[in-house]
Design a protein around this nucleic acid. Structure first.
Lengths: 229, 229
DNA sequence: TGACTTGGTGTGGAGGGGACACTACTGCCT
DNA sequence: AGGCAGTAGTGTCCCCTCCACACCAAGTCA
């Protein structure tokens, strides 16, 4: 089976930069390539777009196939199309970026048949293709976005402490924040539901748990409220 | 001549949403389609990507060919890839958005062999394909971007009055701004060069002209300054 | 019970943002 | 020449937000 066109066409792929967060660091999901080109190199997961699926569907399918991941938050990042970005010929890729709760996927990614692993975003191996550019673009987007939209919560478990939330922002923004000011501000937005629970199994005073209230945020958003940290 | 591939490939195009500004309104450049599909409908200028050019090069080439326009500011907007967005088959388009000084192009676009025209962005004819979505996305981006980056100047002539600048922001943001506060803020950024010239041929007190200082902005930007209006 | 670790809380000062109204200048008309 | 019409240009005050800053509380562990 083959397909013939009057004019030449670039191949079209999607790639997904998936971020997760653990106690140490902001992490990105990479896959080790089994085939040439760049065999053995680590790369951002992705693959070819099928003719009957939307770009976002393609991104979700590839993530599911290659790493068993179904992200809640997935959005288009940028399209990379330099003529020489793939040694096999012209390949244009639509990059997406996704945030996941690392606790949901920690084990699975490690045991999948394909070799997939989480790397600290500040310390990745050398990447295939122009994937270093893709990752840099994604990081820049994450840094810009996290301050103006409440997407950080996608990286945390459903119930979290204020300290966890603050650490998240500190890691992404690469600077320290003042504890009292941070708490004052985030609580004043009235987006967090204070639970009657505290953390378990810690060897010090246990912190109160909170949950992000998506519904309330939707309401406030409609009313013209702007999240800003 | 024809081209054969093992798997089917979508066609790849670029489209350019070009904004301009005149005394009345924010304008967008549209081209009337000469061929099916959507023959006779107005559409955003664009065309197929060639195999040896980058996406941005393709966007610039198409703009030059279809409307004789060479924008200073051109950046990628979003990639539209719904499977059914083009009745001829699968066509994925990388949309760009551009800002131009309308005074430079007002005549030319009207006299080109192709039918090209500027329309108020709030009052366009029915557009071909999913171009209404593309336009809406571009407008949203412009509104979001203009407050945090000094790109509005790309829409004005090199020398402009503060009132012109204020009107620009009012049209894009769709709300009125206070004259004194606006002037205070924009002048305090120290990005405008005050010229020893005033407007000509006005039947009232002539306003002083200013020029945007790109070099100074680059300097301040490096020093960590953030434009914000 | 004492030491250690992290959780949780308030105030004051400085700076920026927004509301607000009048005088100055220029051309045109009578 | 005088007045009118139209736009240019300017300063203050108040409030609210941002930021810097330090101590006591609670719970664990030896």
């Amino acid at each position: 089976m083959s397909y013939t066109y009057e004019y030449p066409r670039p191949a079209l792929t999607v790639d997904c930069v998936v971020f997760g967060l653990d106690e140490e660091d902001l992490k990105v999901l990479l896959i080790r390539r089994g085939l040439e080109p760049f065999q053995g190199r680590w790369a951002i997961p992705g693959g070819f777009v099928r003719m009957d699926e939307s770009l976002e569907d393609a991104a979700r399918r590839e993530l599911q196939e290659e790493a068993g991941i179904r992200p809640n938050l997935l959005e288009q990042l940028y399209t990379f199309g330099a003529p020489d970005r793939d040694p096999r010929g012209r390949v244009v890729t639509v990059a997406y970026f996704a945030l996941v709760k690392l606790t949901d996927y920690r084990v699975q990614a490690a045991t999948d048949a394909r070799e997939a692993a989480w790397f600290s975003v500040w310390d990745t191996p050398k990447l295939a293709f122009d994937h270093a550019d893709v990752l840099a673009t994604a990081l820049q987007r994450l840094k810009g976005k996290v301050r103006y939209q409440p997407i950080g919560f996608e990286l945390l478990p459903p119930k979290f402490t204020l300290t966890q939330l603050q650490r998240l922002y500190e890691k992404i923004l690469e600077r320290e924040l003042d504890k009292r000011n941070f708490r004052k501000k985030i609580l004043s937005m009235d987006l967090l539901e204070e639970l009657d629970e505290v953390e378990q199994d810690v060897s010090h005073r246990a912190a109160r748990l909170y949950r992000f209230d998506h519904k309330k945020y939707k309401q406030l958003e409609k009313a013209g409220f702007n999240f800003e940290l």
